[in-house]
Design a protein around this nucleic acid. Structure first.
Lengths: 327, 327
DNA sequence: ATGACCAATCGAAGCGTTTCGATTCGCCGC
DNA sequence: GCGGCGAATCGAAACGCTTCGATTGGTCAT
């Protein structure tokens, strides 16, 4: 096995100098740097993690697979994060265990990753204090209620909820419904779900619309039940906002089965990845998974380099018009 | 940060004793063991990777994201591996860089993972020699031409290809087509693609059927081109085997657009995860992603425990009958 | 010529863990 | 009562890398 010492000998420098070439923590003259790099190349050197304080080149992606999270969407994030991380020479360690705050602290202490990306963030997330004090760069995809001392990136879900209402109100709709995430997601106070709902409700009041919002459970038949409940409560509903990728397709089918033409009788809007909405030909607020993931990786790499990015970056919602119907 | 030394002090033993409790490499009396374990619990000790020779509790999943690999299917594997690994207390490190043999050696030397799972295996894979000599447990999902000294698990794709032909021949079909993976996948000599094709061709000869096999590229319009090419070459085709998840749905649409009813005029069989085939209501050979992943993790954990599992485990193909049409 | 200063580099200590030879201790047979 | 034995435990070295104070050598103003 080739160590940093072998490289140093071969290049005729001290081991520490090789380390500085590697980490960039001190200046190394251009000549020395290329010589060391050449020796590394020649000897086939690979840095070894198993050594105190060494860099791991690992980005930990913390995504507890809890009830109510929709795997396909999560995996989209994983894919995007992995892709972006690779461009920075980082591998990704998937941390799916829901160790909560304790688990996170263990990871950080153990030096198992250089930096952290945290998903599925709750408004009052127990992991936040750990993130603040753990002394390793972390970025949240999503954001808790208080963001000071953190770095978060998120879609502006509150604006997204409002944007849907405005769009529908502008089209002349008076009675609209909202079908959201499974109820456990709201029960956990998951940020994106709570915020979208808040934005939706406030805007409905502001625009003077009649509205109802319901969660939608996972699993077969749940979409049918959700649509049924909504139609029962609000028979004259003429537009629907759906924020639940798992049931979206089924919701449209159900409406049609109930004899409501989509979009002629009921306009359906979705908040989801654009590709999914495109397939179903629905007007949507884009959930920009790739952008979020890429920006998150960039932010965390910036922090690794010692920069201090803003506490909160909110992406404005973008609307993809497809088949909204004017009343 | 709590170290092994703190635990040792607290429990009134030497640090080495704590280490032995942790690794089990030497006997420790029952009394001491529980005392040490209690101290760990109490102090919230977490082992630290960044230290020579220590265990990482990381399973490296090597899946180079090369041209022609279909991400959704790969991500299914990732999900399954992550789930299975968690049951053994292991996290998963996704290694997506195509570092080839050199990259793999670096990972192994660097002690960045306790064990390896390797995907996207070619018949003559350059990583195989490294796997043999690297001295860390590894399991291949897929298998190269020569498997001695390795541990591999795979669906028996050759049998799968043959099974499709037999099924169709039994139904009375005389002229059948095969639409496979993108051509780059064959060019790389990727095991599963090559073997399926070999099985398909041999069986077609054996059963005396007329057949044509074509690759199907990725991207929009590729399915149309593939179907077009196949129909041009074999206008009287009455059955089709598709081994390409990315284009499967589109292939069926194309056939219908060409005026061929599915399955009445053309029976379409798929080799893909059962769920996808079920959605499209196609007879299929199941690609048992979950089983493969789970067994692979079990095999690699067995090797970590010093056992020596067989070099090659082949799962027999299973057919899910759905809508094959009798001639 | 001199001293101050800065960039580049060195050498050694230190990180948290594993590993291995050495030591302790209790027990048994004689 | 003594030598021998094995299980349990200890202590220290070693692992490959980082870090930090110290040193070198060159430049520049005086």
């Amino acid at each position: 096995m080739v160590t940093i010492l072998d490289v140093a000998k071969h290049a005729g420098v001290a081991p520490s100098t090789v380390s500085y070439v590697l980490t960039g923590k001190r200046a190394v003259s251009a000549g020395t740097r290329v010589r060391v790099r050449q020796s590394m190349e020649l000897l086939g050197y690979r840095p070894c993690v198993t050594s105190a304080h060494s860099r791991t080149n690992v980005l930990a992606l913390v995504l507890p697979l809890r009830e109510g999270v929709h795997l396909p969407v999560v995996m989209r994030f994983v894919t995007a994060v992995v892709t972006a991380a690779r461009e920075h020479g980082m591998d990704v360690r998937l941390v799916t265990a829901d160790g909560g705050a304790a688990g996170l602290r263990g990871l950080a202490n153990g030096g198992r990753a250089d930096a952290f990306l945290v998903m599925d963030v709750e408004l009052d997330d127990e992991r936040v204090p750990v993130l603040r004090e753990m002394g390793r760069p972390a970025v949240l995809i999503g954001h808790p209620a208080a963001v000071t001392g953190l770095t978060c990136i998120d879609l502006d879900f509150e604006a997204a909820g409002a944007r849907c209402v405005d769009h529908l109100a502008d089209l002349g709709h008076h009675t609209i419904g909202f079908l959201g995430a499974p109820s456990v997601v709201y029960a956990r106070n998951t940020g994106f779900a709570r915020r979208t709902l808040a934005g939706f409700r406030a805007a409905a009041v502001r625009r003077g619309l009649t509205s109802t919002a319901l969660p939608t459970e996972a699993g077969g038949g749940a979409a049918d039940a959700g649509v049924g409940a909504l139609l029962a409560e609000l028979p004259e509903v003429s537009a629907l906002v759906v924020q639940n990728e798992a049931v979206l397709g089924r919701v449209v089918e159900c409406l049609r089965a109930e004899g409501r033409r989509v979009p002629d009788d009921v306009t359906v809007m979705a908040i989801c990845p654009d590709e999914l909405a495109g397939r179903l030909r629905l007007t949507s607020i884009q959930l920009p998974v790739d952008v979020l993931a890429r920006r998150a990786v960039e932010l965390v790499m910036a922090k690794l380099d010692g920069r201090q990015p803003p506490a909160l970056t909110l992406l404005p919602p973008k609307l993809s018009p497809r088949s909204s119907f004017r009343r």
